[in-house]
């Protein structure tokens, strides 16, 4: 039963973060929230008896993807800077 409650809580957190990721104007925050969704999802995977998936999701889905996003964002900003 406790798992179910945890799962529900995790789910709600994910939904909230997703909405932030989609709707928030600050793009940095959005990227971070999206990474957060992945991170929370990996906890959910643990509950679903998929530890290896959890591990991968945390490292790749959450970590690496966020890093790439920021990398590209930086490049774009730099570009904008140069132009100005």
């Amino acid at each position: 039963m406790i798992y179910i409650i945890i799962a529900i809580v995790l789910g709600i957190v994910m939904i909230v973060m997703s909405i932030i990721a989609i709707h928030h104007k600050n793009i940095t925050l959005a990227i971070l929230s999206a990474g957060g969704v992945s991170l929370v999802a990996s906890i959910l995977y643990l509950l679903l008896a998929a530890p290896d998936v959890a591990l991968t999701e945390a490292s790749i889905g959450s970590g690496l993807t966020t890093i790439i996003f920021f990398y590209v964002l930086n490049k774009i900003k730099k570009h904008k800077h140069v132009e100005e």
Partner: peptide, 23 residues
């Protein structure tokens, strides 16, 4: 960028579904 971000969310949702089905 937001669209791409939404894609990652889409993928995450998909993955959750798959794992849940396998559980």
């Amino acid at each position: 960028i937001k669209i791409v971000l939404s894609f990652t969310l889409f993928d995450t949702g998909l993955n959750i579904i798959i794992v849940a089905i396998g559980y």
